[in-house]
């Protein structure tokens, strides 16, 4: 995992320290809360993984649309 590897580096540890700062850490904490860093992982680009996520999203959308014929927001 990209994030696990980053955490083990000096940069990762420095970023973690910064994120604890009451003011300077605010944007970093926001990024983490939004899960933006999680989306940077290379695993998301593998075809099998993309298909997996698309299949789950499609199954859910199809179920929610079954009554109305329209996907719900």
């Amino acid at each position: 995992m990209l994030l696990a590897r980053l955490k083990a580096t000096r940069l990762g540890k420095w970023l973690y320290r910064q994120s604890r700062h009451p003011r300077l850490g605010v944007p970093l904490r926001w990024v983490m809360a939004q899960g933006i860093h999680e989306r940077l992982d290379l695993a998301h680009w593998r075809a099998a993984n993309r298909r997996h996520n698309a299949r789950q999203a499609a199954t859910l959308a199809a179920f929610r649309a079954r009554d109305t014929g329209q996907p719900r927001s």
């Binding site: 809360a33 939004q34 899960g35 999680e38 989306r39 789950q56 999203a57 859910l60 179920f63 929610r64 009554d67 719900r72």
Partner: peptide
């Protein structure tokens, strides 16, 4: 689930169950 997106997906499934 580990990621925010994974947890949102589970929540969406629970919302769908509640609606149905």
């Amino acid at each position: 689930p580990l990621t925010r997106r994974g947890r949102l997906h589970v929540l969406e499934a629970m919302v769908a169950l509640a609606e149905a």
